[in-house]
Simulated assay, not measured.
Amino acid sequence: MTNEDPNATTAPSAASALFDLRTVIAVLFAVYGVLLTLLGLFGGSEADLQKAGGINLNLWTGVGMLVVAAVFVTWQRLRPTLTEAPPE
């Protein structure tokens, strides 16, 4: 007989961490953030800037999405999903 607590939780497995909803959302925000940032840096025209009142919306939206992705990754790293130990 072991002295282990039957209600003990274990660290998340690699698969559960990979498919955590926060990770999926972070990847989506990061992909779209990179695309918008690159479009803002290299794809904007002067007419687009004039329509937006002189603000490069693609650039700032892309940077904002990258920040949100970093927040989700940080949240997932600091508060990982704990799984219950399998019954023996």
Rank of each mutant, 00 (worst) to 15 (best):
L49M: 04
P80H: 04
V31G: 09
G64S: 05
L66H: 06
G53A: 04
S45A: 05
F19D: 00
A17Y: 09
L41A: 07
L78T: 10
Q76H: 09
L35S: 11
G44T: 15
G33H: 05
P80G: 01
L36K: 15
T61N: 10
P12Y: 00
V34A: 09
E84D: 15
T81Q: 13
P86R: 05
P87G: 10
N3A: 08
G54I: 10
S45W: 13
I55A: 07
G43N: 02
E46A: 05
L78A: 13
T2W: 11
T74M: 15
F19M: 00
G44V: 14
Y32M: 08
G53Y: 01
T9R: 08
L28Y: 06
L18P: 04
T83M: 09
F72T: 11
L78E: 13
Q50C: 02
Q76A: 15
A70E: 06
L59C: 14
M1N: 04
L57P: 13
Y32K: 11
L39H: 15
R79A: 12
N7S: 03
A30R: 09
Y32T: 12
V63Q: 07
P80F: 01
T23Q: 07
A17C: 03
T61G: 11
N3D: 05
V71E: 02
V68R: 14
G54W: 11
A69K: 06
I25C: 09
P6V: 00
T9V: 07
N7P: 02
V73F: 07
L36N: 09
G53R: 07
V71R: 07
D48T: 13
T23N: 09
L38F: 12
T61P: 04
L38I: 05
Q50R: 07
R79I: 15
Y32P: 03
I55R: 12
S16D: 05
L57D: 11
V71S: 07
L41T: 11
L39A: 15
S45K: 11
E46L: 04
P86T: 05
L59H: 11
R77H: 14
T2H: 12
N58V: 06
V27Y: 11
A17I: 13
E88N: 14
L49F: 06
T10L: 02
S13Q: 00
Q50N: 14
E46H: 08
T61M: 14
S13C: 00
I55P: 06
T23G: 05
G44W: 09
D5P: 05
G62L: 03
V31P: 00
L82R: 03
Q50L: 12
S13Y: 00
E84Y: 02
L28I: 12
E84A: 09
A26T: 06
A70V: 01
P6I: 00
